[in-house]
Simulated scan of single mutants.
Amino acid sequence: MLPEDFGAGLLRVDLGAGVVAGFTTRHGGVSPAPWSSLDLSDGTGDDSARVQRNRDLLADWVGSPVAFATQVHGADVLELGPHERAEWSGAPPTSAGTADGLVTAEPGLGVGVLVADCVPVLLADATARVVGVAHAGRRGLVAGVVDEVVDRLLTRGAETGRLRAAVGPAVCGRCYEVPEQMRDEVTAVVPEAWSTTSAGTPGLDLPGAVVTRLVARGVATTRVDRCTMTDPDLFSHRRATAAGEVTGRQAGVVVLS
């Protein structure tokens, strides 16, 4: 399942019939530098009206409004339904609540995850008609956010043999340098994240670890293997910080059409 471009700046992935899913790039929006141009976060210092316009563009591309949570690098999961669909279809709130995972069985309500190096994970069971997203940064991965979203989908009727997952662009293990003690602490819980960077220093491979853990649970998983640190078409918090700049946030989004 290779991603294909549909709508300016959106990479589509196949998660089954009746499901629209994809990952945004930094292109196709209205924000000026340094957010250039599809900044989808209201927490980067970008103008709120521009961010809302960018979110409206995303909604046009996927055919529905998209709900986002306030992400705190934890493992809490929110379930969204008809009430939230009505809210996000009108004058949308800025956040669905505090969580790093969202799940819905509501057609016409997208759920999204905001990232700029962390791992965006999209999941869907097209037969059970339930979808979810996870924001898997270092702390969230250790806390078990991906497993929490999978478990919540299973309680809503999904089956692991039918679940499909897509792991989106994130900083790769060759670029994510961390102190050796941090690598030891993370890999004591998530051994699959162990990595050495291209410079030979301690690293963490978060997207690789997410893929490995999903596959181990029997979830068919595809990966958009693009590193945010080195790909100029993507936002990267680490790259921007190193340059003394601010940056926007891209998104992963999934919708029951």
Rank of each mutant, 00 (worst) to 15 (best):
E159L: 08
G74D: 06
T25E: 10
P232V: 08
G74K: 00
A128M: 02
V103G: 00
V178P: 09
R53Q: 13
T25M: 05
W61S: 13
A69I: 08
V113K: 05
A124W: 06
R156D: 04
D5Y: 13
H83Q: 15
T221V: 04
T197D: 12
W194E: 14
G161W: 12
P3T: 04
S89M: 02
H83G: 13
G63F: 02
R226I: 07
P65G: 07
T201A: 15
V186E: 07
A209Y: 11
T70I: 12
R217H: 05
S64M: 06
G140S: 12
L57A: 13
T221G: 10
D205W: 08
L206N: 08
V149L: 00
R226F: 02
N54A: 06
S36G: 12
V255L: 01
G101T: 06
V133C: 10
V30A: 08
R26A: 10
A59P: 07
G22N: 07
T187K: 05
R85L: 10
D14V: 03
L141P: 11
T228F: 08
D225A: 14
G74C: 10
A134F: 00
E84V: 06
G244V: 05
V189C: 06
S257E: 14
G173C: 10
A8W: 13
G252I: 04
P179V: 09
R85V: 03
T222V: 15
D60Q: 11
V149K: 03
A166I: 08
L114H: 07
D117W: 06
R223A: 03
P92M: 04
R164A: 05
P207T: 03
L234Q: 03
E185G: 14
S41W: 06
S95K: 10
P202L: 05
S41G: 12
V20N: 00
V121C: 02
R162M: 09
T25K: 07
M1I: 12
A116M: 02
D14W: 09
V142Q: 08
P32E: 05
E180H: 12
Q71C: 13
L2V: 14
A91K: 10
P82A: 15
